[in-house]
Computed example of a mutant assay.
Amino acid sequence: MVSIDKIKVAASLLLVALGVTGFYLVPADQGIVRSLPVVLSLALAGFVLWFSNPGRAFVDYARDSIKEAQKVVFPTRKETWQMTGVVFLFVGVLSLFMWGVDSGLTWVFYDLILGRG
């Protein structure tokens, strides 16, 4: 048996599809009027989903995500500059290492093995 929540989700998807279809049916020179079906269909689909269990679960998830995001401690300006300096230093050292390995392998293969020096 199909639950009422599945019907609500299907109806919201159908509303969004109708809105996109309406967008393409309106002539391209009608800027705001052309986007109106999409906006209305998204609003109606959100309204339909609001009263379904998956919609309420999503709202609860979004609220929990906002609470978790508020717990994030961002680094100070000094810490940010220090970490940026460490990253630049690491990139510089790694690029010198890679250049050394590339030059060494080029010397080994072209000068020693192939003799094309």
Rank of each mutant, 00 (worst) to 15 (best):
L44Y: 02
A45Q: 01
A45I: 00
G46W: 02
G46C: 01
F47H: 03
F47Q: 03
L49F: 00
L49H: 00
L49W: 00
W50V: 03
W50L: 09
W50E: 04
W50T: 03
W50P: 01
F51N: 14
S52Y: 00
S52N: 04
S52A: 08
N53G: 11
N53Q: 15
P54V: 06
G55Y: 02
G55V: 00
R56H: 08
R56A: 07
R56Q: 15
F58E: 06
F58R: 11
F58A: 14
F58W: 10
F58P: 02
D60C: 04
R63M: 09
R63F: 11
R63N: 07
R63D: 08
D64R: 10
D64C: 09
S65H: 07
S65Y: 04
I66R: 04
I66W: 06
K67F: 09
K67L: 08
K67E: 15
E68L: 13
E68N: 12
E68C: 04
A69P: 02
A69T: 07
Q70K: 15
K71N: 10
K71S: 12
V72N: 11
V72D: 03
T76M: 05
T76H: 08
T76P: 00
T76Q: 04
R77A: 13
K78Y: 07
T80Y: 14
T80N: 05
T80H: 06
W81G: 01
W81F: 13
